[in-house]
């Protein structure tokens, strides 16, 4: 069963919740799909045993053939290729690896090679957690290339916790796409509510069941709760705005390690999801 943890707004506590769910239950898969800024390892402290390099195909141009590469520049939707006379200027960070320039360019003068876009690190964390994190190479916009390689590592007979990237764009949608349930984390502020609403739009259109965790409860206003009640949305948990939680978070101490009574609360959420929501 795949449970993803997402939020429209960044910094609402996705990783706090995802890590707590994994630690409370144990013997699960933990997937850090926030490959642009993976941080779950700070809390789970996995013993990384294995690294996998993720590559994409990128073109290179044999300019010594004297061929005209103009068509490659015209074709590239992402503007990764410019042509000045016989010279080709290639921008690897913009290339999506579609291979179009091989098709439209001068035959035999455009080649392809594997280029590293990031790594997947694998290891074990307590208790019995199989840990996977994607780590995108800075400057490369190949988030989904890495996430799709991570998809292949999921052990489907286990509970799988996916820590999603923030926002509601492609990387978030891709992370969620196979989820049986999504836990949306928000904060009780106007910004939190706005982005919660956007996330719910995404989940509705993807037909994925969801519930809400309100983090830093006590700040802002009561509008998020009002919104959930009005729309019949399950509030799974409220985490108070608490200096002790914040202080420990900043030192890499998860909620369940800081105060073990949280383990029961997160296990209850997982029980609810397994028995009633899915």
């Amino acid at each position: 069963m795949i449970i993803s943890v997402a939020s429209g707004k960044g910094g609402t506590g996705k990783t706090t919740v995802a890590v707590s769910l994994a630690m409370a239950r144990g013997y699960c898969n933990f997937m850090d799909y926030d490959v642009e800024a993976p941080n779950a390892s700070f809390f789970l402290k996995p013993d990384i045993k294995n690294e996998q390099t993720v590559t994409m195909k990128q073109p290179y141009f044999l300019t010594e053939t004297g061929a005209d590469f103009k068509k490659c520049a015209e074709f590239c939707h992402f503007n990764a290729v410019a042509v000045a006379g016989k010279e080709v200027i290639f921008f690897p960070e913009l290339c999506h690896g579609c291979g179009g320039c091989l098709l439209v360019g001068p035959e035999g003068s455009v080649m392809e090679k594997d280029v590293e876009v990031g790594k997947i690190r694998k290891g074990k964390a307590d208790p019995g957690i199989s840990f996977f994190m994607g780590d995108l190479k800075p400057g490369y916009m190949r988030t989904i290339t890495i996430q799709s390689e991570m998809d292949k590592l999921i052990e489907h007979d286990k509970i799988v916790i996916i820590d999603c990237p923030p926002g509601t764009s492609c990387p978030m949608v891709f992370s969620l796409k196979d989820s049986d349930y999504c836990v949306l984390v928000t904060e009780p502020t106007p910004y939190g509510l706005n982005d919660l609403d956007l996330s719910i739009e995404v989940l509705k259109s993807m037909k994925i069941p969801y519930g809400v965790i309100i983090n830093r409860d006590g700040i802002g206003d009561g509008k998020v709760e009002e919104y959930c009640n009005k729309n019949n949305i399950k509030i799974l948990l409220k985490i108070p705005n608490d200096m002790g939680i914040a202080r420990n978070y900043s030192r890499g101490v998860s909620l369940v390690e800081y105060d073990n009574s949280w383990a029961g609360k997160f296990n209850k959420i997982l029980d609810f999801i397994e028995k009633e929501a899915v």
Partner: peptide, 18 residues
């Protein structure tokens, strides 16, 4: 025409200038 490009607008515009 490349001003609304998602990315690489400068590259496309430079190509136009060339």
């Amino acid at each position: 025409q490349g001003r609304q490009a998602m990315g690489g607008a400068g590259i496309q515009a430079a190509q136009l200038v060339i």
